[in-house]
């Protein structure tokens, strides 16, 4: 017998979690699809379900004194799009996720909790060193999203923990982003690329690259990024950067695309963005 629990408060949810091994459901836009059996039949869950989607205390978007944006876990994508304080890069990414009706239900924390290699919001979250706050009856801990996601559908969450907040740390970056799906709306990503950078006095003082859908999780490599920090922008060797990432990008063949295409387009996007970055120094 599967139970479905709707907590009245976060504390109530934490108490339930401390004694139950269960699914945590927010918008349900992914879980309900995963567990779908057939029309007119209830989805089949193999564990109890804790439905936290309506917890008002986890629905907020605020700014702390350091300029970081704190997002309550149960905030819907649609609310993030409407917020004046959510950084533009996140809105750019969210606008291309699913459809308006899905975005009215889905949450960013769901995208993190899922740990799918094709999770679009993971790309800016990981590139921007965003953090998640995990809570249990025993306390609280903070992990970077990149530390939280361990692999395909694998995360660092302990059974009694729940993500209560996403922290978008203040960044001073400019971005170049492109999602490639099968069509212009409502598509699952075949490959995506995000470049974040900061240029000061013609010097590249920050440089970051992330790829989505071309590996077991979002691809980002600090070692490579550090090599290109604090160099003159004109000295940025596009071919060298590409060769650095060439082996790191390890896509697969599936029903949506093939590995040759994904790899080639990942490299093409990186080249395009690097050239734009170099071309933009005189702005």
């Amino acid at each position: 017998m599967i139970n479905h629990y709707v907590p009245t408060s976060l504390n109530d949810a934490l108490k339930y979690l401390s004694t139950h091994d269960c699914y945590i459901m927010s918008g349900g836009t992914d879980l309900m699809v995963q567990k779908h059996v057939s029309s007119l039949v209830l989805p089949r869950f193999d564990k109890d379900v804790l439905y936290v989607g309506e917890l008002k205390e986890l629905q907020y978007i605020k700014e702390d004194k350091d300029g970081n944006i704190l997002i309550g876990a149960e905030t819907k994508y649609a609310d993030l799009l409407l917020s004046p304080i959510v950084p533009e890069i996140y809105k750019t990414v969210i606008k291309e996720i699913a459809s308006p009706n899905i975005r009215n239900m889905a949450t960013m924390v769901g995208n993190i909790g899922n740990a799918s290699p094709a999770g679009d919001s993971l790309v800016p979250l990981i590139l921007n060193d965003a953090e998640v706050v995990l809570k249990s009856v025993n306390g609280e801990r903070v992990l970077k999203v990149s530390e939280y996601i361990l692999g395909v559908k694998k995360t660092a969450r302990k059974n009694d923990e729940i993500i209560v907040e996403i922290r978008l740390l203040k960044q001073n970056l400019r971005y170049l982003y492109r999602k490639v799906g099968a069509r212009k709306a409502e598509s699952i990503t075949k490959v995506s690329c995000l470049v974040g950078y900061q240029i000061k006095e013609k010097k590249l003082i920050d440089f970051r690259v992330a790829f989505g859908s071309v590996g077991v999780t979002i691809i980002r490599n600090l070692e490579i990024e550090n090599k290109y920090k604090n160099i003159e922008v004109k000295d940025l060797d596009v071919d060298r950067v590409i060769s650095d990432y060439y082996q790191l990008v390890t896509p697969i063949d599936d029903q949506r695309s093939n590995k040759e295409y994904r790899h080639k387009v990942a490299m093409n996007l990186l080249r395009k963005f690097l050239l734009e970055l170099k071309g933009g120094i005189d702005e």
């Binding site: 099968a182 069509r183 212009k184 709306a185 409502e186 598509s187 699952i188 029903q255 949506r256």
Partner: peptide, 11 residues
Amino acid sequence: MSDYVIPTSLD
């Protein structure tokens, strides 16, 4: 329908 895609109005 997420894998067999048909054109949307945007396409």
